[in-house]
Design a protein around this nucleic acid. Structure first.
Length: 834
RNA sequence: GCCCGGGUGGCGGAAUGGCAUACGCGGGGGACUUAAAAUCCCUUGACCUUCGGGUUGUGCGGGUUCGAGUCCCGCCCCGGGCACCA
């Protein structure tokens, strides 16, 4: 008996699959339904560990299953090949970024092939190739034309470690998303932005469409990030200075008669004018400097003590005409709303806290609808709910909801305010002062200003052989051949833009490129994209909840506007898989806790690794790597191999029929049991693939089937070859999406031709899965007191009679009064006694 | 503070309101072997037991139900997200 030789079997079948074009997706195939399955494209860092492999294993199992179910499956992969690590590696060891990147890609591709992932390699893309990034430039030009791309000077996030600007989405808690050690700094520079805010409402509305298909927490994160809030803008004139007014944004204009102060941020642009000529100015300036420098960390900000000072100036409440002091307060954000707020201590927690500290007056202007009236002198916290207005001039007596509308309308009529909606979402800053990315296709001409590079001159190629320093401005600025350009409009001298694009642009539309990867006239063919889209299933880590996943949605909407696509959302279903941990921590190079994919495959074979990652935990949960666990998986596959190896010779020439003709009169109990077992397993495994994706339970069920087979040994004496073959083949088929190499090998050993990859997934048969006899438990007062084997179809009354007739039950019921009985067919009888 | 997930044996984890702990790992015992590895078999929540079985047990406290890991209410703990957003 030969042992299972993983390496030989894996190489053998990978070669055969290649020859059969097993994973080729066919454009516009009318004969089958399409299924677009995608895992997030990897950054080619060079190392692939079991964390990556888990992601791809889940995808591959589903891809193989869907193919067997008759779908035309698009399962592509590519490389997110631009980005800083390549540039940093180049600076460190002098290897050009392209060389470093391509050699990593080659390594990683080899690992993917070693694992037998069924990607359509003919569609492989790499974002650093001109054939790809020219379309980034093309999209940029389209957005420049329509005004969605624009240039402005503003305060942006600067990561001192990356030596580049970051988008808001790429700053997490005040730190760069890649570097959790150095805080992001504020820097005022001019750069390119994409008007993602134009789509704020569309992105918000799309969330409803995604509900059910996307994990709720991702949708919540996106909704929070967009942060829509409706309220009003109101102008407070500054007293004693003609012509200066401060705008506040509020969602509670209904509380405006309760304003005790006007609070402005330390960075408010008008603060200079307000403070003009007030006494004590020097001391104030010192305080302002201190406030502007305070911590950027969100957690610190939220818990920081509220600080502020009176500016000596007053503002006039346009509704009441009341004069209120103007204060500077550290908790007012310069970047949100108008950078100034009205302070209503009775109806806002923060304002209450602030006024408590500085002894500012509290005035109640909203009374609760269903509780005792509030009194300012008896309050110990703000009342922030809606209620009924009091002491609010002509608005007294109105409900908050109505007052909000009426007061905003009145403010607009008297032109000191208007209803307004603000968003937390800001435009996407895409300029990067680094080399290894897509050049922004723009030149600056003295005469014509900003001029987009004409489409027919794309791509603007990234020059190779550039000296990289990593010193805070784009290395491209030091390449005269690149910088010096001709203005496409006037033909005069022009300077080329030297910043490159955020690499998140590359990944915002890459999945469209897979539908038409070699097109050199357009980013993709509309009809091909229309056939394959939307993505039926996307799989990736949850860390991209508001990065890649919001940018991609924005791009889809932008493309929809260009008429390139006709759908509104690119991804129907999203699955977030858990991380692979070792010693409780996420696998990473720096922690030194990596289990290398190749090492794992060398030791156990890739099918064993695939099986373990699917078996050890359901896919959405984190998985703790266990060397003993993987040995268990290895043992199991060997056991299956030996079982089939033992019986295959006798079965090789038997005709395979999954729907064994069960002649009930002829079949033995043992035979019926095995067939039933197999079809019950098939039913549940099919369900796991279709709806639950709990591959761990699928594998457990298959293990049980193998256990049942082993328990029935010797199989060759009591089981007819037809039945045994059908059961063993079912077993192999069910296993094959998860462990495809050993699956194919066993399938062949059992005498089947044509390859499993092209085999149809068998339908389970209810009649073969049905149990004739079931064990029903007998309870007395909910406690198990007996069991009986009965006909599965037995009704309630019959069941109850049988239970009551049981000798042991009779004995236990002796002297008790039966209050009621509950019978559940196929399950139990519960006898309630007193 | 607010919003999502979770909390089940020694461990990873199973359980459409119906025998809690499937399956695997680990532990204990045995078979095969000169021996070991591999393999196979038995056993394995806790407590009590006259070895028939009994009691108890899914973070804690209540409730609904004939019956609750599962549903409801109130807490505790862990993980994640948001966090002075006016």
């Amino acid at each position: 008996m030969a042992d299972y030789d993983a390496r030989r079997v894996e190489e053998k079948w990978q070669k055969i699959w290649q020859g059969q074009n097993v994973s080729r997706a066919i454009d516009n195939d009318p004969s089958r339904p399409k299924y677009y399955l995608l895992e997030m494209l990897p950054y080619p860092s060079g190392t692939l560990h079991m964390g990556h492999m888990r992601n791809y294993t889940i995808g591959d199992a589903v891809a193989r299953y869907k193919r067997m179910c008759g779908f035309n499956v698009l399962h592509p992969i590519g490389w997110d090949a631009f980005g800083l690590p390549a540039e940093n590696a180049a600076i460190k060891r002098g290897t050009p970024p392209r060389e470093w990147t391509n050699s990593n890609i080659a390594q990683m591709k080899a690992v993917c092939e070693r694992f037998g992932f069924s990607y359509d390699w003919a569609r492989e893309i790499s974002t650093c190739e001109p054939a790809y990034y020219r379309w980034n430039q093309w999209f940029f030009l389209k957005m420049l034309e329509s005004g969605l791309a624009y240039r402005k000077r503003s305060r942006v996030n600067w990561c001192p470690q990356c030596q580049t600007v970051l988008a808001n989405e790429q700053v997490i808690d005040g730190f760069c998303w890649q570097h959790e050690t150095t805080p992001v700094e504020a820097k005022e520079i001019e750069q390119w932005f994409l008007r993602i805010t134009d789509f704020a409402d569309a992105l918000l509305e799309g969330i409803d469409e995604l509900t059910g298909g996307w994990p709720e927490r991702v949708l919540i994160q996106q909704r929070n990030w967009i942060g829509k809030s409706s309220g009003a803008r109101v102008r407070f004139d500054v007293a004693d200075i003609a012509g200066i007014g401060l705008d506040v944004f509020t969602t509670r204009i209904d509380t405006i008669y309760g304003v005790s102060a006007l609070l402005v941020s330390a960075s408010h642009p008008q603060l200079g004018s307000v403070l003009e000529g007030v006494p004590g100015r020097a001391g104030m300036d010192a305080q302002l400097r201190a406030m502007r420098q305070s911590s950027v960390k969100a957690a610190d900000i939220a818990t920081a003590e509220k600080e502020g000072f009176f500016t000596g100036r007053f503002a006039v409440n346009p509704f009441s005409g009341e004069r209120v002091p103007i204060w500077v307060a550290n908790f007012v954000l310069a970047e949100y709303g108008t950078g100034a707020v009205m302070c209503v201590p009775a109806h806002d927690e923060r304002d209450y806290e602030f006024c408590e500290k500085y002894h500012l007056p509290v005035k109640v202007v909203i009374q609760p609808l269903h509780a005792a009236p509030l009194r300012a002198d008896r309050m110990n916290e703000a009342f922030t709910e809606y209620g009924k207005l009091v002491d609010s001039g002509p608005y007294s007596g109105l409900a908050s909801e109505q007052a909000r509308e009426k007061m905003a309308a009145d403010a607009a009529a008297k032109s000191f305010g208007a209803a307004e909606i603000t968003y937390r979402l800001k435009d996407w800053g895409i300029s990067r002062q680094r080399y290894w990315g897509t050049p922004i296709p723009v030149v600056y001409c003295e005469k014509d200003g900003i001029v987009g590079v004409p489409e027919d001159q794309l791509p603007v190629r990234l020059p190779e052989n550039v000296t990289l320093t990593g010193q805070g401005q784009s290395p491209l600025a030091s390449v005269p051949e690149f910088v010096n350009a001709t203005c496409p409009k006037c033909g005069g001298p022009a300077r080329r833009e030297t910043d490159t694009m955020d690499t998140f642009i590359d990944s915002s539309w890459y999945f469209y490129r897979y539908t038409d990867p070699h097109n050199d006239r357009a980013p993709f063919d509309k009809a091909k994209a229309a056939y394959w889209f939307a993505i039926d299933q996307y799989i990736g880590g949850v860390e991209h909840a508001i990065l890649h996943l919001i940018y991609s949605r924005f791009f889809c909407k932008m493309m929809n506007g260009l008429g390139l696509v006709n759908h509104r959302e690119p991804v129907k279903r999203l699955f977030s898989q858990g991380m692979v941990l070792r010693d409780g921590a996420k696998m990473s190079k720096s922690k030194g806790n990596i289990v290398g994919a190749i090492e794992m495959a060398d030791k156990y074979g890739c099918d064993t690794g695939r099986m373990y990652t699917l078996f050890a935990a359901p896919p959405e949960k984190d998985l703790e790597w266990s060397e003993q666990g993987i040995e268990g998986s290895s043992r199991f596959l060997n056991r299956v191999y030996r079982l089939i190896d033992k019986h295959a010779p006798r079965l090789r020439n038997v005709r395979l029929n999954f729907n064994v003709q069960m002649d009930m009169a002829k079949a033995s109990e043992k035979e019926k049991l095995l067939v039933r077992r197999a079809h019950q397993t098939l039913k549940r495994v099919t369900n796991d693939f279709d709806v639950r994706w709990h591959f761990n339970t699928s594998i457990a069920l298959i293990m049980e089937l193998v256990n049942a087979l082993s328990a029935q040994e010797p199989l060759d004496q009591d089981i007819s070859p037809e039945i045994l073959k059908a059961v063993l083949c079912l077993l192999v088929v069910m296993l094959s999406p998860m462990t495809p190499h050993i699956g194919e090998e066993l399938w062949e050993m059992l005498g089947n031709e044509g390859g499993l990859a092209k085999q149809a997934w068998p339908a389970y048969r209810e009649d073969l899965a049905r149990e004739e006899q079931v064990e029903v438990i007998i309870q007395i007062n909910g406690r198990v007191r007996g069991k009986m084997l009965v006909d599965a179809e037995l009704g309630d009354d019959e069941l109850t009679d049988r239970a009551l007739a049981d000798e042991r039950i009779k004995m236990l019921l002796d002297g008790k009064q039966i209050v009621k009985t509950i019978a559940v067919p196929k399950k139990l009888v519960n006898i309630v006694v007193r």
